[in-house]
Amino acid sequence: MVSPIDERGLRELMVESDDLQSDAMRTARRDLDDYVEAVLDTRAERTGSRDPGGMWPGWGKAGLVAGLTGAGALLANGVAAADAAQDVQALQTAASLENVAVATYKTALTLPFIGGADANAVVKAFAEKTMAQHTEHGQAFNAAVVKLGGKAQNDPNAKYAAVVQQTVPTIKGAADVVALAIALEDVAAQTYTKNVSQVSTAELRQLFASVAGVESQHKAILLAVKALIDGGAPQLIALPPDAAKLPDAAGGVGFPDAFFPTEKASPVAEGAVK
């Protein structure tokens, strides 16, 4: 196989991938806009107003509207409000998970074996790029929340922030950091996969799916990296790897499940703004 490329080569690849992903970002933003329009249209059909009014339908206004339009509208609006409120909560929880991920990668990059002189160049570059992608995901989720009249979630998810806080002092090397990152990526990917079944519009289903796929890619690469570190072969973490020297099992360790699990998914309201 080809010998590993140098760090500059890796950076060039990342620039190329940035160009590619900017198209995807535009698509995601369009999906968000479509989603917002779909929700507001639904609201207009049911309440006569597209104005979220600084508050999400169902959080106070729904009762007033229902009182004016009768019991039938109450039922319809109640369903719409419940769906929409859950959508906002899901987006806020997603943003909270992204905030934890960003903070964790940021901390990791201050460690000598991830972002310092002792770091593997590929691992360092991966951590930087992944942190940037999580930042974009958080921005996208919060942009949708704000457009829908909710509050942006700028805090980390409390449950997983505590996990990180407890774990960081025990970190002794790159493998520990990678294990922590795998856990966070897995929770995010499982949450968004499950969110696909919990949100109320096609556009939002697609958005969550599109981010779930990226988090699971992070997980796949981290699983492969951890296997090589644990196996005492960190020198094989290169781009491209020397495939001839990779152990057999490394070929499958990155994707352990035929169907992506969801049992670790965060509840929809776990990271919602109180």
Partner: peptide, 11 residues
């Protein structure tokens, strides 16, 4: 030898 997670969103 390509960057393994090229897109922030799956298109």
């Amino acid at each position: 030898g390509q960057y393994p997670v090229p897109d922030s969103f799956i298109g």
